[in-house]
Amino acid sequence: MADNTIDRIAKATPPGLAKRVRGLSDRAIAWLFVGPSILLLLAINIFPLIWTIRLSFTNFRVNRFNAPIEFIGLRNYERILSDPDVWKTMQATAHFLFWTIFLQVLIGFALAYLINKKFKGNDLWTTIIVLPMMLSPAVVGNFWTFLYQPQIGLFNYVVGFFSGIDPSSFSMIGSIHLAPWAIVIVDTWMWTPFVMLICLAGLRSIPDSIYEAAEIDRASKWRQFWTLTVPMVLPFLMLAVLFRGIENFKMFDLVVQLTGGGPGSITTLTSIDLKREAFEKWRTGYASAYAVILFVTVFGMASIYVKSLNKVKDR
């Protein structure tokens, strides 16, 4: 049947075209297929990257077409790395990254472990839990500003109800002590389901026979959890950490909507700072250097992380 089809296609191919295709090597045909993708990649990824690196050594401002562009060497890099305000945004980003990932992994894994047990309404609960990650970050940011409202917000009311504190006596997004936690809570609420889904995939990939063998060997539940479940889910968990880490390193919309980077600059993450430099102050050369520094940081950290992930998978 297959032979007939191939024969029919061969007969239907115009002689000229058939001759040309017959003349191509396998390698040439492979390039023919891969070529457009590579060109596209070069155009939309590699070229802008090279261009950004080039601009990072200049004083170029995109809103000053008439101004001469001067090569200023490493001055932009020096200014960024010696600016205490930039380091503060790095600290804010590190705080946000660490706590969101820590909480999401902890809660996400716990939820996945529970959902993995067979119980009535399992599917319904899974759907309800994953709802937050289906919402737009801008919408989430907006409605959490209402939830955090000291006078009418549900969050303050609930805290007040359980602790006895006056709900209007504290402001989650107006206090320098609480605002960094306010953004961590919202991101955790939104993205824990994502980590849960990945962990769930990991848990469901573990064959029942392994647990049955452990049962026969009289391994306790606790021991099964630490010696079977955790090691076998770990590569999935590490993948989730990688995804969330990269995503949260460039977090912008949710935080801008919630706090605008305030109070003061306490929740100004690097991506917010970068956006202000590039598209509000229009310091294109400076912002390019800033972007290169962030790119190298993320790329370096992700590369190290991926290597360790591969080691865990190989074990």
């Binding site: 320098i176 305030g262 109070p263 003061g264 600059s265 509000e280 102050k281």
Partner: peptide, 19 residues
């Protein structure tokens, strides 16, 4: 815009954040 952003940060830092 640069002048404005600098003032926004400094003033907000003092008035709202109390730093």
């Amino acid at each position: 815009a640069s002048l404005l952003l600098a003032m926004q940060a400094r003033v907000h830092n003092y008035v709202i954040a109390g730093q």
